[in-house]
Design a protein around this nucleic acid. Sequence first.
DNA 1: CATCCGTACTTAACACTGTTAAGTTCATGT
DNA 2: ACATGAACTTAACAGTGTTAAGTACGGATG
Lengths: 201, 201
Amino acid sequence: MQGSSHNVVEKDDRDLRTLILDRASRLLVEDGYSGISMRKIAQAIGYSATTIYHQFGSKDGLFHALVEEGMDRLARYLDQAKGDGLAALCRAYVNFGLENREYYEIMFLVTPDSVDRYPIHKYRRARRNLDLFAEAVADVLGAPSTDLQYVRSEATTVWAALHGIVALIVAGRIDRGIGEEQFVVGSIRRIVGAYSSGALA
Amino acid sequence: MQGSSHNVVEKDDRDLRTLILDRASRLLVEDGYSGISMRKIAQAIGYSATTIYHQFGSKDGLFHALVEEGMDRLARYLDQAKGDGLAALCRAYVNFGLENREYYEIMFLVTPDSVDRYPIHKYRRARRNLDLFAEAVADVLGAPSTDLQYVRSEATTVWAALHGIVALIVAGRIDRGIGEEQFVVGSIRRIVGAYSSGALA
DNA sequence: CATCCGTACTTAACACTGTTAAGTTCATGT
DNA sequence: ACATGAACTTAACAGTGTTAAGTACGGATG
C-alpha cells in the first residue's frame, strides 16, 4: 500500500531535505517536540506540508532523521571525552543531555508509537555510542574482552543510570532542594565507584 | 479566567468520578497513553466528553488523578519490600515499572507539557515513595540521619538509576542480546554495591 | 400552582493535528 | 507538438483537546 514513495533522492532534493531538517531542528529547539507540527515546519520554510511528506514519508521519517542528527551530536560529545576514563565519559553524556534537551527528548524520551519498527540500521550510531561506554567499562573492570556480551550488559547498566539522571532532570522531577550540579557529580561518582573499587569481582 | 469550575464534589459525583477513572484506567492499560482520548473514554462510559471536563477540568486533570493512583500502586509495591533492605526495595520498584508499564508511562515517562504546574500537594505521595529509598539508603550508609539533605540526594541517585533501567526496558531500547532479567539483577547489584562496600566513605 | 435557580448533562463548534487523494505546474525527452 | 514524470499544492478526512451555548430536570421559594 504505502509503497508509492519512490524514495527519490536526487541532486537537488538534498537542498530541500537539509532545508527542512534545519528548520525542523530550529523549531524543535525553540518550541520542544510537542511544539512542532508538519504544518508549522512547512510554513517556516515556505512550502506546503505535503512536501515534507514527499521527502520523509511521515512525521516519523522526519523524526528519525532528527534522531540521527542527535546521535551524531552525542557522538561528538563522547568522542571528545574518549580515553579520559569512565567518569569523563559519563560527564560528557550528561552534559550532552542537559545542553541539548530537545534532542535528548526526541532521542530517548519521546516514543512515537512506532519505536518498534525503527529501521535497525539507523541504530548503528546508537550502538557505537554504547560501545564507547563498553570500552571504558572494560578498561575499568580490567577487561577480559572475550566476554563481550557481559561488558555490553554492564555498559548498558551505566547507560541506564546516566539516562535516569538526565531524564529526571530534563523532566523537572528532581526536588528543587537538591542542587543539580552536586547531584550530577555525586551520581557519577557513585556509578564509577560501583565499577572501580574491586567491587563484585 | 478558568475559575468557572466550581470544583463541586458532592455525594453522587463520587460515583461518576470513579466510574470515569476506572474506565480511563482500563483503557490506559489496554491501549497505552497515546491510545486514549477524552472522546473514547466518554464513549466507553456512555457520557459525552464534556462531562469528563466538568469532573476533571482538563485532560491533565484526569491525567493527574491517574498518576496519583499510580503512585498509590507504587507505594504498595514498595511497602511490601520495606525493611527487607535496599536491594529488595530496588527490585520492588523495577517490578512495579515492568508490571504496570502504562502507569509507569504516565507517571514518569510522559510529560504533558504542564508538568511544571503540577499541583505540589499531589506529590506528597511521590515524595513519600522517595523517602522509603532515603530510609534504606540511610540504613546502608550507616545513617547520620542529621544530614537529611545528603541522604535525600543519594536516594535520588538510586531512584535515577532505577528509573533509567525501567525507562529503557519499557521503551524497548535495551539490546535484544541482553537478557532482561539478568540485566535487572546485575544493575541492582551494581547499585547496591555502590553503597555497601564502604564505598566513598 | 408557578416561577426561579442551579445541577447535570449534551450538542455543536473552533482550531488544531497527521495524513493522503487528486490535482496542477512545468521542464525535459521524443 | 506531445507525452512523461518530477515537484509541488489544494482540499479534504478523521481524529484531537477544548469550550460556548443550550437543554432537561429537580427542588426550593413566591
